[in-house]
């Protein structure tokens, strides 16, 4: 981590309004501030409706905001860019393409030749343990394997910033634990900065350097919790009393938001 460099992601006083069908303007995000340093792994967690996925889409450049500024690697965001890649909750694989072509899709959009993109995609399929499935179709793979393809596709474009939108939430609990460890393995061999959206507290704590907690109505950052667990994190980490303590702290904050929400909800 280079302290002098600009952050990988800098979100400053960002607000977003949604206009409902009857013309009313509702504040969806209220002056959100967020920074992900270079090489850092940051998770956002919060109740549904807190705008965490909205936040990720704005950083990804596929959704506009109304006030404030967002920059990635020091440059203002004005759309999708080659320094960012996203891993999606629904995997978003193309069912008519082979695993190899899916992994190479981002490179194809960047205009790389077939030989070059296939070579890179093969490399990354190897990294995520799917080298033997290059010619299979997504429909033949389990959810966990499909998301490995999604990760390979994102990594193939050599991004600086990896945006992950609840990537493991559609995957069974056991496989999810394995994927978390694999993700950290891959990340530790790169200088990637990661912004990770989740609703699983143990996942946020296990993966992250910092956990950002967001509240709803309107979406805002309520807490940032530093996760001082040593790296590399392994299965032992999950039994570390400190891990349990930090997870409990995240839950305390979240539970506060949930009760606030219930008390403040219009009846």
């Amino acid at each position: 981590m280079n302290a002098n460099a600009t952050p990988a992601i800098a979100v400053q006083d960002v607000s977003k309004f949604f206009v409902s069908a009857d013309g009313r303007r509702t504040r969806a995000l209220d002056k959100v501030n967020l920074a992900v340093e270079r090489g850092e792994f940051v998770s956002i967690i919060g109740p549904s409706g807190c705008g965490k996925t909205t936040m990720l889409k704005m950083v990804g450049g596929i959704l506009d905001w109304d006030e404030g500024s967002i920059s990635v690697m020091g440059a203002p965001v004005s759309g999708p860019g080659p320094e960012r890649a996203t891993v999606f909750q629904s995997f978003a694989l193309l069912p008519w393409m082979t695993v190899l072509d899916n992994a190479a899709f981002g490179l194809k959009m960047r205009g790389e030749t077939k030989a070059a993109r296939h070579a890179k995609a093969r490399n990354l399929l190897e990294t995520v343990g799917l080298a033997d499935f290059a010619n299979a179709y997504p429909g033949e793979l389990s959810g966990g394997m499909q998301q490995r393809v999604g990760l390979a596709r994102a990594l193939a474009v050599s991004p600086n910033v990896l945006l992950m939108d609840e990537p493991f939430s559609a995957i069974d609990a056991q496989t999810r634990l394995i994927l978390q460890t694999e993700l950290l393995d891959v990340w530790s061999q790169t200088d990637l900065s990661v912004l990770f959206i989740t609703h699983a507290m143990d996942e946020a704590v296990f993966l992250s350097d910092r956990v950002v907690i967001m509240g709803a109505r309107p979406g805002h950052v309520t807490d940032v919790i530093d996760i001082d667990l040593p790296r590399p994190r392994t299965e032992e980490t999950r039994r570390d009393p400190r891990f349990v303590e930090l997870t409990a702290r995240v839950w305390d904050r979240l539970r506060g938001l949930m009760t606030d929400e219930r008390a403040g909800a219009p009846s």
Partner: peptide, 23 residues
């Protein structure tokens, strides 16, 4: 979700038509 994915990788309107919508 597929449209969003293609856009996130920088595909424009026509690329999305050819690569995603038509197939």
């Amino acid at each position: 979700a597929l449209l969003e994915m293609a856009r996130s990788f920088g595909a424009g309107r026509w690329r999305i038509l050819g690569e995603i919508r038509l197939p």
